[in-house]
Design a binder for these strands. Structure first.
Lengths: 298, 298
DNA sequence: ATCAGCCATGCGACCAACGAATGTTGCGCA
DNA sequence: TGCGCAACATTCGTTGGTCGCATGGCTGAT
């Protein structure tokens, strides 16, 4: 029941002649004759009636023909699908990323990926680093973009980590602020400024951890959304801490200043895949897009 | 892409281990390892990630697995179907027969066939001999029951003819008829009797041809159906010619007499299949039932 | 540090399938 | 009726693929 034999069988059935099929397949007549004989021996059924001019399918031959064509078609489909997976004209890519990466980095990479590989089905889930790595381990994601503080590195044994960039912390100030022309500030220079905090959880878990232990900003206003937060800053109500990845472009009515690296521990951003697993072609191509997007944001 | 390789692939995927799959398949580990390697070379894709403990499917491996299982399942289905066709637990049988054969002979054979092979789908079409042979040639019937006068034999080159019986001509007479106790009559003994003819066409084409040239029966009544015809005979309105195959059993109120063989040319009844074609198992089995049914009617 | 488990690979042997040539059968033509 | 042709079957020698056996490299556990 080898596919080669089924192909021979199908051709003989189509031509109604062993000799003609042999010509078409560029085999000798004896080879085709023996292939058919072997198939008949294996199935225990006579598949062709030998007529004076050629051969004709028997009932059992017609029965097998349908199955044979289905099998050969399915094998072709398998080859096509595998090739499509290889050259990225089909397939899927399941990406996970932490919230601020979803703001600009990952969407840009996804857009570039889709532009060149429109056949690949994309999906994106947002989550926090531990949950994302859990998804990756469970096989529910192909690649996840995660972050880690330098003093708490990720498990390099379980994951292959592809370093994308180091996230810097920015301070958004009004254009009229006294430090608006500076490129870098120390946090102690902002000790007297009013801080506009973001949503409780994100602010607590992400930014607070990044700040040095001694610094306690004075919080006057809490704004849940980034737009509202930056709006408050632009209106002169105070200043705000912003992860660099959260801003797609510098708004015209405020200034973004880097926090001095000694004041804010940068978070390292990686693309993670399962260790020991070969990265599917789609993942490899997406990593290249992520690199480009990260370079644009650096 | 040989089925054996796909089977190995499926087993390795199921066990997650080349060694375990080899044990299950009663192969050596090296054979399985090389089968997988060959499959990867053929597809141009890495199908498994080699882990410290066993192997794990890659994305492309999962893609192939679905196709491989479909192919293997279909091959199993093909084997089952062929076996079923061989042992008559499945398949179909398309029978054709001329009208009087449909009265008793063919239905009895079909009933016996169905009793032992309930899985085979049966179909029966009624027709005249030329049309039936046309159907057979066109592949629209598997076996046809046909009749022929001895002086006009069927084309033995195009058809394999299996002789079932010779149809005798009967005369139906009332129980009170002067010849009712006889077993055989000469037609000239009925020269003064009134004949009840059947439907015009059937009577003309079938019976008239069977009668000797010199005999002209006196026709008083025409009755289209067999039941009405025999009813008229029972009522004493006359006598009627009846092909033996048209009567399932002797009605209680009339007598059936054989016409002397010199007076009526018997029609030979055959089961015909295409010459040079091997008879499918269902046809062979049905021919045996036809033989038995014919023996019962002889 | 040694051991055990797992996969990859080199080697020799075997079997299956191929091509070339020949045999067999049935049809068509002179 | 005999011959030639066309198509399928069969035999023989060769070749390539696949198996078992053995070995080696690697990793995690005792």
């Amino acid at each position: 029941m080898q596919p080669a034999a089924l192909e021979v069988f199908r051709t003989v059935a189509a031509y109604g002649s062993i000799t003609a099929a042999a010509r078409a397949l560029r085999y000798t007549q004896s080879a085709v004759s023996r292939q058919i004989a072997a198939l008949e021996a294996e199935t225990g059924a006579r598949l062709f009636d030998r007529l004076p001019r050629g051969v004709a399918l028997t009932e059992q031959g017609r029965c097998l023909l349908g199955h044979a064509e289905a099998v050969l078609d399915r094998l072709d489909a398998a080859r096509r699908d595998l090739a499509a997976l290889g050259d990225l004209t089909a397939g899927r890519l399941r990406v996970g990323a932490f919230p601020t990466a979803v703001a600009a980095l990952v969407p840009r990479a996804l857009a570039a990926f889709r532009a060149t590989h429109p056949g690949v089905a994309l999906s994106l889930v947002e989550g926090l680093t531990p949950g994302l790595l859990e998804r990756l381990s469970a096989g529910d994601a192909d690649v996840v973009v995660v972050s880690a503080a330098p003093d708490r590195p990720l498990d390099g044994d379980r994951f292959d980590l592809h370093h994308l960039l180091d996230e810097v912390l920015l301070v958004a100030v009004p254009r009229t602020h006294r430090l608006a022309r500076r490129r870098t500030v120390r946090l102690r220079e902002l000790a007297d400024d009013a801080f506009i905090a973001g949503s409780a959880t994100a602010e607590e878990t992400l930014l607070r951890a990044a700040l040095p232990a001694g610094f306690r900003p004075r919080v006057d206003i809490v704004a849940a959304e980034w737009t509202g937060k930056l709006g408050c800053v632009a209106a002169g109500l105070g200043v705000a801490l912003v992860p660099a990845l959260a801003v797609r472009a510098t708004p015209p009515d405020l200034a973004l200043l880097r926090v001095h690296r000694e004041d804010a521990a940068v978070r390292r951003v990686f693309a993670a895949t399962l260790a020991g697993r070969t990265r599917p072609p789609a993942v490899r191509a997406f990593l290249a897009r992520l690199d480009a997007a990260a370079a644009g944001l650096r």
